[in-house]
């Protein structure tokens, strides 16, 4: 824990930068997430803020095409109200058709619709963004990771560390900085500390104060309106879009584990009882044989 805090501090202060020569990518700091661990759940307010960041910043270029508006109201997610989702969906134009005349037409979205893609196709997306199509974000938190290496990939199993995608995304969004001396960033590229190869097509998307957060009773924003907070919130939201049944999975998992452990216990004693009929279980072999024969 201490080590991790130090690591985060080091990363925040930029102390780790000189340790990495050009071409080397620093390891994203491991953050604390509400959804990590066997009983993790999403923070609803965070998901709602994250959605706001997505909508106001990312959505102009990045799609969310596997997510339907109705998902936003489903349990285990941001849990907006049905009415909010209906109103939100209606703000989007969805292509439908053909009608009787054979024409495609646009209509207001319904909760059952999925988020429309910002560009009609990948080529259009690439053409509008300097030749590189901005990827869809629905699965981003599961589609990105970073190298864990030995022995961490083994300890991850026991720690249930599966937030590597989320940690990477936050690091990436915070990772824009001036290119170090001697590093030439090609035309249309941007220097990012955490992006493999350091040259990313996406310009720095977030800046402090860019998105207005809901106010609490004291009239203060619910969370700091900073790049780091925006990055964490939008990442939490994208973790939910990538794994919408995460809460149900962990909840069911606990019940299943509990049941199986009880069943295994019962079976163990049943087995002992049955084997007692033949004088108990005797495993294996004696080596070398019979040296301790009475």
């Amino acid at each position: 824990m201490m080590k991790r805090t130090l690591l985060i501090a080091a990363a925040a202060l930029g102390l780790s930068a000189p340790a990495f020569a050009a071409g080397e990518t620093p390891v994203p700091p491991q953050l604390k997430w509400s959804f990590q661990g066997p009983f993790g759940t999403f923070d609803r307010a965070q998901l709602q803020r994250g959605f706001k960041v997505y909508r106001e910043v990312c959505a102009s270029c990045h799609g969310l095409t596997y997510v339907a508006f109705r998902n936003l109201a489903e349990p285990g997610g941001p849990e907006f109200s049905e009415a909010q989702v209906k109103a939100l969906a209606a703000e989007y134009k969805i292509q439908d058709g053909p009608n009787e005349a054979g024409d495609m037409f646009e209509r207001p979205g319904r909760p059952a619709d999925r988020f429309p893609a910002p560009f009609p196709n990948e080529n259009a997306a690439a053409a509008a963004n300097g030749g590189k199509a901005p990827p869809d974000l629905s699965l981003m938190a599961k589609a990105r990771t970073y190298e864990r290496g030995f022995p961490w990939f083994i300890t991850d199993v026991f720690r249930q560390y599966s937030e590597n995608g989320a940690d990477y995304l936050v690091a990436l969004l915070n990772g824009y900085e001036e290119a170090p001396a001697g590093f030439t960033v090609p035309q249309g590229g941007h220097y990012n500390k955490y992006y493999p190869g350091h040259v990313i097509a996406m310009p720095k998307p977030l800046s402090d104060g860019q998105v207005e957060y809901p106010k609490n009773e004291a009239g203060q924003p619910q969370a700091p309106e900073t790049v780091d907070q925006y990055a964490r919130d939008v990442t939490a939201f994208l973790t939910w879009t990538a794994e919408p049944h995460l809460e149900a999975r962990k909840r069911l998992g606990f019940q299943v584990m509990l049941f199986l452990i009880v069943l295994a216990g019962l079976l163990y004693f049943t087995k002992k009882k049955i084997w007692a009929r033949v004088g108990g279980e005797v495993d294996g072999h004696a080596t070398p044989p019979m040296t301790h024969n009475p």
Partner: peptide, 13 residues
């Protein structure tokens, strides 16, 4: 239930 994607590859998403 706890690390369902650990044995898979991120690239396959």
């Amino acid at each position: 239930f706890y690390i369902p994607n650990y044995l898979g590859h991120a690239d396959n998403y």
